Simulated scan of single mutants.
Amino acid sequence: MPKSKDEFDQLHPCDFYEADELLEPEKMYTVYEIARLMQGLDPNAEIDVETEEILLDWAIPWVIVNAEDLVVGEPESDDEPGYYGLKTDT
């Protein structure tokens, strides 16, 4: 149910990282790792499943919005996620 803005102590701008601010140019990341990076966590940080699901709700649209700046690498097997990285000139 929607809430009134006055119910919140503080409102923050909805500001997301640009792809080149978040990802290192020479690395490829899974969407799970991108989700962690968006929260300032190490890409290999251990987090509980419920938190990971919430973070994915932010990371998946971020990948879609930034698709022009990304390349995709195929997963090693069908049961693993794909990889995303910065599109570079190399």
Results as ranks from 00 to 15, higher is better:
E46S: 15
S77Q: 07
D48F: 13
G85C: 02
I54R: 07
N66I: 01
L55T: 04
L86K: 00
Q39L: 06
L23E: 01
W62E: 02
P43N: 05
A19M: 05
E68D: 15
D42H: 15
L55C: 04
A35T: 03
C14T: 14
K27P: 00
E33W: 00
E24W: 01
E46Q: 14
E21K: 08
M38S: 05
L22Y: 05
V72S: 01
F16A: 14
V72D: 01
T30Q: 05
D78I: 11
A45G: 07
I64F: 06
Y84D: 02
P2I: 09
F16G: 10
Y17S: 14
M28T: 09
S4H: 06
E50S: 12
V72Y: 05
V72H: 04
L22C: 06
A59P: 04
F16K: 07
L55D: 05
R36V: 07
G82D: 12
P61N: 01
D15I: 13
A67F: 06
V71M: 00
L56F: 02
Y84K: 03
W62A: 02
V49I: 15
E52L: 12
A19V: 06
Q10M: 12
L56D: 01
F8D: 11
D6Y: 09
I60G: 02
A19S: 08
V49R: 14
E80P: 00
P61S: 04
F8W: 13
V71G: 00
L86Y: 00
V63I: 14
E33G: 04
I47G: 09
T51D: 14
Q39W: 07
L56Y: 00
E7V: 15
E26P: 04
T30E: 05
L41M: 15
E26Q: 13
I54W: 07
Q10L: 12
M1Q: 12
W62Q: 02
E76I: 11
M1H: 12
F8P: 13
D89E: 14
G82N: 10
Q39A: 11
D79Y: 02
M38L: 15
G40A: 08
G82S: 12
D42F: 08
D20T: 03
E18W: 09
P25L: 05
D15W: 06
E52H: 10
I64C: 05
M28G: 05
G82E: 13
E80I: 03
E50H: 11
T51K: 13
G85P: 01
E33M: 02
L70N: 00
A59I: 02
W58I: 10
F8I: 13
L56T: 01
E46I: 15
E74T: 10
I60E: 10
K27H: 10
D89K: 03
G85I: 02
A59Q: 00
H12C: 11
D69Q: 07
D20C: 04
E74S: 07
D48K: 13
G40T: 08
I47C: 11
K5G: 09
Q39C: 10
E68Q: 09
I60R: 13
A67W: 06
D20F: 01
M28L: 13
K87F: 02
E76Q: 06
E24S: 07
L55N: 06
A67I: 11
L22A: 06
Q39R: 10
H12W: 11
V72Q: 05
